[in-house]
Nucleic acid binder design. Structure first.
Lengths: 338, 338
DNA sequence: CTGTTAGCGCGTTCAT
DNA sequence: ATGAACGCGCTAACAG
């Protein structure tokens, strides 16, 4: 099977490679007649330009990279959806890499990306990452980078996040206004700025409503879910006065729900729960849990758009702006009360 | 900033480009001394080979493509996870494309892929796809293809699926053995072989246990969820004798759960429900629903491994074998009965 | 062991 | 409006 490339097309049409190339790229310096001839044969033979030759020549790959901790997570899955949508609209391809929150793996991936394989990078850093030299080094190769969700404060570039501080504030206030006086806060311990912001929103909301923050009511969860269930059980037993729980992570909200059921604490009469969530699980429980939901799809889409705009303009250095998208608070009540 | 490539390295080391290239690729025909010198400079300057130049020259991109209907779906998200894992282990990159179950989009993507951008393709076809000419045409470019989950019978190549027939059979039998006599089957209407297999398993299980299949008990759902809820409500009202429901799709199982609650049918006393599911939602309901769960991660991983093996051996044509992985039946009972 | 040469397929000069 | 020639960065064949 003879290869279908510019050369073979040119031979069959009795013209030069250059003319065929120009015709296919719709150059204005080629007659309409030949354009038609070239295109006819190209589509007939199902010609598709070799992406690598083109990339090599133009030093531009029409490909962006996405580096995220995981994909089996509704937030990131939705974000990828948004990214792919924006990329496709601009004719870009999407390479995906998973770090599994492993620092060494993240470094290895980022190093690999220096080979000019991508025109731009979208990234959500691994939770364990504290040293950002690898990212800075990548940025120095003039590769545009946009962070989303788990941003990296030490690297100056565009970032797309949600209003974590305000969400924490609103979630906590929601519980307070519903009558809660002893609101616990569950979060996963790590050095991500996200958790810190939500935590601060929680603290400020308490203060603003005349409640005294109690460190004993703040539970730092771990990675293992079984352990978290035990920690939550312990907390609820130690502090029977808890009448509201704000969970920074969906799993912790669900676990709280189960522990409450197990301990016979009625929801929401005895304990009201609100949690960050991008999954529908919380809404399906009986009674359903109220949630703060991040606009994951929009975050991915917006981040990709900003990146692609920079790529198209060959702007390697992005302004270190922070785009903040609003989360939505869904208040859910049991429908069984009718 | 001077570019870091073989040429610049060679100049600084006073040797030829070829030697540098060989040293970096650890060729056995280069002295250890020069290898050391080359590597030292390469790492010092953070050299990374240009992926496109290499791909063009070797006609091999170390990249595989993944074409799936959507990613915001736990099954596909887990599958991608498995694919990325296998790819990474073999040093491959992963390009991702979403069809959103749109035939035109699938065709456009597949056409794009003919440019030699990928060394192999993993694919789950769009639900609306009936004409497979675009896929066959891609296969004719000697690109190895492996289907997973939503396979395409008309194209002869390797396929990785779950035991849909058997799963349908086991799910139905599970309900029958639990005492159900009037088992309904809910599925999404389309021309995918998957639904057909599950349906056949359902029918055969009924027959095997002396029950007569009743076409009135088979509900063909649609894409819109609101409509499905209405259809299910209508079915349960029309047929109060229904005491078991087998849902081929998670959403239908969840919807059935809600309709039962709304109509005052107790679960599982009045109606037992079992559904295909890859999400934890079904397990979180109260009472939890029993599920048939596909090994999504393993499917992705296995499919990728088969594909990569073919790619490495430059075997364009894969044996038209079908790998079938076992689903798991989770029987869940309410824990509140204690 | 190392250097020289010749492309991979394409896009962009510079000619005509 | 078209063709000839060069080079993107890298690898492979052939010399020595």
């Amino acid at each position: 099977m003879t290869p279908v490339n510019l050369k073979s097309l040119a031979e069959q049409l009795n013209m030069s490679i250059a003319t065929v190339s120009r015709a296919l790229r719709d150059s204005h310096e080629v007659s309409d007649a030949t354009k038609a001839r070239v295109r006819a044969l190209a589509t007939a033979l199902n010609y598709e330009p070799n992406a690598y030759a083109s990339s090599l020549r133009r030093n531009l790959s029409k490909t962006i990279g996405v580096v995220i901790p995981k994909v089996a997570n509704h937030f990131f899955a939705l974000a990828i959806n948004g990214i792919e949508e924006a990329a496709r609209q601009s004719g870009y391809h999407v390479l995906i890499y998973l770090t599994h929150d492993d620092y060494a793996r993240e470094v290895s991936i980022v190093q690999h990306l220096k080979g000019g394989r991508i025109d731009g990078l979208l990234m959500s850093v691994a939770s364990g990452t504290e040293d950002f030299a690898h990212i800075k080094s990548l940025q120095e190769t003039n590769l545009p980078i946009v962070f989303f969700d788990r941003v990296c404060a030490e690297v100056a570039t565009a970032k797309v996040t949600t209003n974590d501080y305000e969400s924490g504030y609103r979630a906590t206030e929601h519980l307070i206004l519903a009558g809660c006086r002893h609101v616990a806060h569950l979060l996963i311990s790590n050095n991500l700025s996200i958790g810190q912001f939500r935590q601060q929103g929680y603290l400020d909301a308490l203060q603003a409503h005349g409640l005294t923050p109690d460190p004993d009511l703040v539970l730092h969860g771990v990675m293992d879910n079984e352990q978290n269930v035990a920690l939550i059980r312990e907390l609820l037993l130690r502090r029977p006065d808890i009448d509201g729980v704000f969970a920074s992570v969906e799993r912790l909200a669900i676990s709280t729900y189960h522990v409450c059921k197990e301990l016979g604490r009625r929801i929401p009469e005895d304990v009201k729960i609100i949690g960050f969530s991008n999954l529908e699980a919380a809404a399906l429980l009986d009674p359903p849990l109220s949630t703060i939901t991040q606009p994951a799809y929009e975050i991915g889409r917006e981040a990709a758009k900003i990146l692609l705009r920079a790529v198209e303009k060959k702007k390697a250095v992005l302004p270190a702006q922070s785009i903040v998208l609003e989360s939505t608070l869904f208040e859910r009540r049991s429908t069984a009360s009718e």
